[in-house]
Simulated scan of single mutants.
Amino acid sequence: MNLKHLTARLISLLGEAGVRENESMAAHTTFKTGGPADLMLLPHTEDGLISVLRVLREESVPFSVIGRGSNLLVSDEGLHGAVVKLAERMDGISVRENRVTAQAGASLRPICLEAIRAGLSGLEFAGGIPGSLGGAVAMNAGAYGGEIGDFITSVRVLDRRFETLCLSAAELDFSYRRSAVAEQEYIVLDAEFTLPEGDPQASMDKMNELNARRRDKQPLNYPSAGSTFKRPAGHFAGALIEQCGLKGFSIGGAQVSEKHAGFIINMGDAFSRDIYELILHVQDTVLKETGVFLEPEVKMLGEF
């Protein structure tokens, strides 16, 4: 990869503010860990995104598309190639009648607040989920009995040829912590929600109550990626981990939270390798002692 040549091409598309070299991924993940990416690209329009992706393909540059990095563990060695971040610029939200449309980089809390202000309900559960819409659609993010896929009418995506598709909720095939987006390697552009009418004050009260429960039960004062593991059928990951005596167990600066065993947290000086090795240790211990395999919710990027 001729970095100078590639950077010049990308700056011509995004401007200098949209192209960063040797960008630390610790600044772009909620774990606050990860080495540098060769290039960080910040498109602010759909056309700009498609143009950038086509340049990367022409130049045979590997790339990852991220939102707010809330479900990512990036290698300490960093990432070769490009990281395309949608969250800083492609984050528009609009409301029309009972439909809310948001771009992939929009955070879930502002989406929820816009819906509430418009007298629409249903998304209160998402008001405390830290990620952006693209990732939330890909993994069908959920909490407190609600899931993103419950209210989605359609999602526009780019396919592997960077052609635009509009998919219905049925075509997205939502289920627990999965959708067709990740399996087909689609890139989410935006999504439309159809929501029932509600009382704005009641909806705000509900969102605030759920967020208070989060603060009470989850270690939100430490960097983490939220729940580290998916809920295994018939069990709760945190309960299994605690049952195995792992609450508070640490490797380097990474710890199984003493507040909620389902969270692995960065105590302040963790490396990604510490977190990764702790994930493996928890999986191995729980499997040996209970026979249950814990599948991570966290997506790994780079070499581990």
Rank of each mutant, 00 (worst) to 15 (best):
F263L: 04
A26Y: 11
I264Y: 11
F236N: 07
T45R: 06
V52W: 03
G248D: 04
P196D: 07
G18N: 00
I116N: 00
L133F: 01
N211L: 14
T101C: 07
N211C: 14
G248H: 08
P200C: 09
G302D: 04
P296W: 07
S51I: 12
D274F: 04
L294T: 09
V188C: 07
R178S: 09
E97W: 08
R231P: 03
G226R: 08
L73W: 06
M300E: 02
L53H: 09
L56C: 04
D150V: 08
S12M: 06
S257A: 06
V137N: 02
T228G: 01
R156G: 06
M40H: 01
D274A: 04
S168G: 12
H80V: 14
T285N: 00
L287R: 13
A87I: 06
F162M: 08
G127R: 04
G268V: 11
L210S: 01
S75H: 10
A115V: 10
G18F: 03
D274H: 15
A191R: 00
L14F: 01
F271N: 00
D274Y: 06
E258D: 10
E295C: 09
G245S: 13
M90V: 13
D173W: 04
S24M: 06
G245I: 13
Q184F: 04
N211M: 15
L49Y: 07
C166V: 15
E277S: 05
E23M: 10
R273P: 00
T30W: 13
A27R: 14
E163G: 12
L123D: 00
A26E: 03
R20T: 07
A82E: 02
N211S: 11
V19E: 03
R117A: 14
G92K: 12
L210E: 03
L287H: 09
A254D: 01
K247Y: 12
E297Q: 08
G252C: 08
M90F: 12
P232G: 03
P219L: 09
V61A: 05
K299F: 05
R9C: 06
D269T: 13
G105C: 09
L13F: 03
N22P: 03
T101D: 00
H44R: 14
A118T: 10
G262Q: 00
P62V: 13
L86T: 04
I116A: 03
I111H: 00
E185P: 02
K247Q: 15
Q103D: 06
A141G: 09
V256E: 03
K230V: 12
A170W: 02
S51Y: 08
A180W: 01
L42M: 05
E114V: 09
S175G: 11
F174A: 03
R161S: 13
V292F: 05
T164C: 09
N140G: 07
E192P: 02
N98T: 15
L195Q: 02
V95L: 06
E59S: 12
K299I: 15
Q201C: 14
Y186R: 00
R214L: 08
A169K: 05
L172Q: 03
G302T: 10
Y176G: 11
G262M: 06
L3S: 13
G146M: 11
D38T: 12
E58K: 14
C112P: 01
N71F: 02
I11L: 00
G128K: 02
